[in-house]
């Protein structure tokens, strides 16, 4: 089914911002969780769900940390020319970001957007968004795109997973949209007690409509979703993550074994350039 294979964008010089992005706010939204709103018209204009930006997380003339950090675009305001990133302060780069004042003005070097996008469902599809951790970021932008682009309100179910209730970050934003929100926590502190993919599998089984599934989460969640999707033949796209150096297809550092067509051979394909969104049938089993 070629229509479900995500397409790589053709990179053009115009698609890449040449100016730094200006911080609007850098808000702490939960324990260790932040939303960074940046202003740069080009990135805000052209970014689509699934795409990511590469942020320099060091002072202007410093090269330590050396590599940029990739973040999925979480939300955009095309009129105001702003875009949002959702991140957790877990390493050197993200801790540097967390130290940016939560007030307007700081300039941040950002390249992008890079990568491909989720492909649109049909009007008949019952849409499932399955996310965990910061993986909910591209799903949120995708939900907003779907709600904005459809004449009839699409049927969207969000399945969000986290270890605990406190880690269910971004759920309030989803709840303000017109969609069904279901949550799963590992410790049972909110919603379904167990894995988000188990929750999804149960809900999907009861659904009588043709499904269309979009997922993004930690590697373990992605792998579990891939296995369910392949076993039950759900048309599914998964936004994968991988360690990256460049983010635009040059270094071949971020490859994963990925097929070019269902049932085909595996090739080391770049998650930044051919991805990060792939049809679940193309992904290699067992990568966690």
């Amino acid at each position: 089914m070629s229509s479900s294979t995500p397409q790589s964008p053709t990179p053009t010089p115009q698609s890449h911002a040449t100016r730094p992005s200006r911080v609007v706010f850098n808000r702490r939204v939960g324990p260790g969780w932040y939303t960074l709103r940046l202003e740069e018209a080009t990135i805000a204009q052209v970014s689509r769900a699934g795409q990511f930006v590469q942020v320099k997380t060091a002072d202007r003339s410093s090269f330590d940390p050396l590599l940029r950090r990739p973040f999925s675009v979480y939300d955009v305001d095309r009129e105001r020319g702003t875009y949002d990133l959702l991140y957790t302060a877990v390493g050197r780069g993200t801790r540097w970001l967390a130290d940016i004042p939560d007030s307007p003005g700081t300039m941040v070097e950002v390249e992008g957007p890079f990568g491909n996008t989720f492909t649109a469902p049909t009007d008949r599809d019952s849409i499932y968004l399955v996310g965990g951790g910061v993986g909910v970021a591209p799903l949120y932008l995708f939900a907003r795109e779907l709600l904005a682009s459809r004449s009839a309100l699409p049927r969207i179910t969000l399945c969000m997973g986290a270890r605990t209730r406190e880690q269910l970050q971004g759920i309030d934003e989803f709840r303000r949209l017109s969609l069904r929100c279901e949550v799963a926590t590992d410790d049972g502190s909110e919603g379904f007690h167990g894995r988000v993919t188990q929750l999804f599998a149960t809900l999907a089984e009861r659904d009588r409509e043709p499904l269309r599934v979009y997922g993004c989460g930690p590697q373990g969640m992605n792998e579990s979703l891939r296995a369910i999707a392949v076993e039950r033949s759900y048309p599914t796209e998964i936004c994968v993550e991988s360690l990256m150096a460049c983010g635009f297809g040059v270094c071949f550092g971020c490859v994963l074994p990925i097929r070019k067509k269902p049932g085909g051979d595996f090739y080391n394909r770049r998650t930044c350039y051919e991805g990060p969104v792939f049809d679940a049938r193309l992904l290699h089993p067992g990568i966690e």
Partner: peptide
């Protein structure tokens, strides 16, 4: 090419 992971950041380098 080689198995993943293929890149890793180090102090002022990779």
């Amino acid at each position: 090419g080689n198995p993943i992971p293929r890149v890793c950041e180090t102090a002022s380098g990779m």
